[in-house]
Computed example of a mutant assay.
Amino acid sequence: MRDRTGNTVITTVSLVALCSGAWLLSSGTASHPPPQPSPAQAAPSLPGHHRPEPGTAALPPSPPDRVRIPAIGVDAPLMGLGLTPTGSLDVPPSERKNLAGWYEAGTTPGERGTAIVAGHVDNKEGPAVFYALGALDRGRTIEIERRDGSVAVFTVHAIEVYDAKDFPDEKVYGAAARPELRVITCGGKYSKQTGYQGNVVVFAHLTAVR
């Protein structure tokens, strides 16, 4: 659902279905874990960094069709995602490893508010669309191709990893006064019994439109 300012409203949305670690489980080894963000890529917490960085004026709503992250070789179509009956975010079909999704009941990327994109880190065959997400650095760009023909360009301002039990729902999904984007996949500690124990989250804001 959405509020009247276009912000995404999500409360305690679980991403468990993304996090089975299908490739590592099927191979019986954890020797190929995906990269995890370093502490240096977290949001700055020093005095003077609490104000939002400059951005670009918001766009009108338009569904996204494709996501590109040149720095890590992502170029993938987007499908709409909803919520499951248990309240968790639905996920793209795991067999389509180069497919990501966006939360279509929320903000569209480029609109004022917080837009959500999510995808698998792996499937039974190997790495999936967001396998390398944790290798991103601040300052890299994410391009969202929109159905109205525009391309919304977001600049990454933080990459963080959270344990599932400490996932900061408000920080990730909460309302934003400017156009922001969250890109989410699995990460953190890995268990052969339960898969990945957390999520990698990329925080970005709109800085250009083509």
Rank of each mutant, 00 (worst) to 15 (best):
W102A: 06
H120L: 11
T107L: 01
D166R: 13
T114M: 14
I144T: 07
G126E: 04
A135W: 03
G113S: 06
L133F: 08
R112C: 11
R146D: 08
P109A: 03
G106R: 11
A152D: 07
V156Q: 04
H120V: 11
Y103V: 02
L133Y: 06
V129K: 02
G101Q: 03
A115L: 08
E145Y: 10
I144A: 00
T107A: 12
E104R: 14
Y103E: 01
G119R: 00
Y162F: 15
G139W: 05
G134F: 02
L99R: 11
E125V: 15
V156R: 02
F167K: 02
A118C: 12
A164K: 00
V117L: 15
V129L: 06
E160R: 04
E145R: 08
I142A: 03
G149R: 02
R147A: 15
P168Y: 00
I116R: 10
L136V: 10
E143F: 10
A164Q: 10
V156K: 07
R140T: 13
V161C: 14
R138H: 01
D137C: 09
I142Y: 04
T108E: 01
H157I: 09
P109E: 06
R147V: 15
L136G: 02
T155M: 15
Y162M: 02
V153D: 08
Y162D: 02
R147S: 14
T108C: 00
P109F: 09
Y103N: 05
Y162K: 03
V156L: 01
E125I: 14
A135S: 14
E160A: 13
E104T: 11
K165V: 13
K165I: 10
H157L: 09
A105K: 05
A115M: 10
S150Q: 12
F130M: 06
E145S: 12
R112M: 14
A105F: 13
R140Y: 15
E160C: 07
I144R: 04
L99F: 11
V153W: 08
D148K: 03
